[in-house]
Amino acid sequence: MKKYIVGFLVFSSFLTHAQIGIGTTTPTSQLDVNGDLRVRATTLGTGLEAAKDSILVINYKGVVKRVTSKQIYDSHIKSFVKGSASGTINLGTTISATAYKTIPFSTEEFDENSDYNTTTYQFTAPQNGIYNVYVQYELTTLVATTGVGVAIFVQRSGTNTLEAEEIFDSINISVLTVNVNVSPPTRKTSTLVKLNAGDKIFFGAAAGTTISLLSGSKSFFTIMQVK
């Protein structure tokens, strides 16, 4: 009887510490299956908590690991941002060598993935994809000057690129020998851009004179990741 007990203990210890291979003679985990895995029956659970936090995935080495459902969701969440400003918008610093100056949109209406920085006034792409970008502003007063415009810029590897713009020059109209310069007060533009993770989007306004912009529904931007 003692021999059987000793043998059982040795065998149990072997099973506890050994690596078992199915379809392989060189297992690298406690159970290493080289092939398909089939489960013929499962137990139906009634609690939702386990389902919310019990997702099994296979990494590039074929090892099964558990991750939370939130991690899976957050890694694929798309960007949806709308921003404006709480008061009259005064333009910021000059953008590169162009005539444009930064539009300091400092207020967010929503930002589903926290991708926009209200201090630097830049949106940072969280992942590679296609993004739909729209921006508009309205001047606080009509101006009689040329080159009043709005633009969308993308920064890739530290280099700023103008992606889209709209510029109006004032038109001189003569009415009863009185010359009047007219120009629409609103500027707007939009585009689709292909971004890599880390690329930045920001906005600029240009004018031959000092201008101020209305806020709220008059001057705002939206960014939506479509792919």
Results as ranks from 00 to 15, higher is better:
Val182Glu: 12
Asp169Trp: 00
Phe105Val: 05
Ser84Ala: 13
Leu142Thr: 13
Gly47Thr: 08
Pro184Asp: 06
Glu109Pro: 05
Gly83Gln: 06
Leu31Gln: 07
Met224Ala: 15
Thr93Ile: 09
Phe220Gln: 15
Ala197Glu: 06
Ser114Ile: 08
Ala205His: 05
Thr146Asp: 15
Asn117Cys: 06
Thr42Arg: 08
Glu49Pro: 13
Thr124Ser: 02
Ser190Asn: 09
Pro126Phe: 03
Asn34Met: 04
Lys65Cys: 14
Tyr131Ile: 02
Asn196Trp: 00
Val193Asp: 01
Tyr73Cys: 11
Phe123Ala: 06
Gln225Asp: 08
Thr119Asn: 02
Gly47Gln: 12
Ala207Cys: 07
Asn113Pro: 08
Thr146Ser: 14
Glu108Val: 13
Ser215Glu: 15
Thr16Trp: 10
Asn59Asp: 15
Thr145Trp: 09
Asp53Trp: 02
Arg38Ala: 13
Gly7Asp: 15
Tyr4Lys: 12
Phe8Met: 10
Ser219Asp: 04
Thr177Ile: 10
Thr222Ala: 05
Ile5Phe: 12
Ala99Trp: 07
Thr68Val: 04
Gly208Trp: 01
Val81Thr: 13
Thr88Asp: 15
Ala206Leu: 07
Lys52Val: 13
Ile22Asn: 14
Ser79Ile: 04
Tyr134Ile: 02
Asn196Gln: 11
Gly87Trp: 06
Val81Trp: 07
Ala207Tyr: 02
Lys188Gly: 08
Pro27Thr: 05
Gln155Asn: 12
Phe110Asp: 13
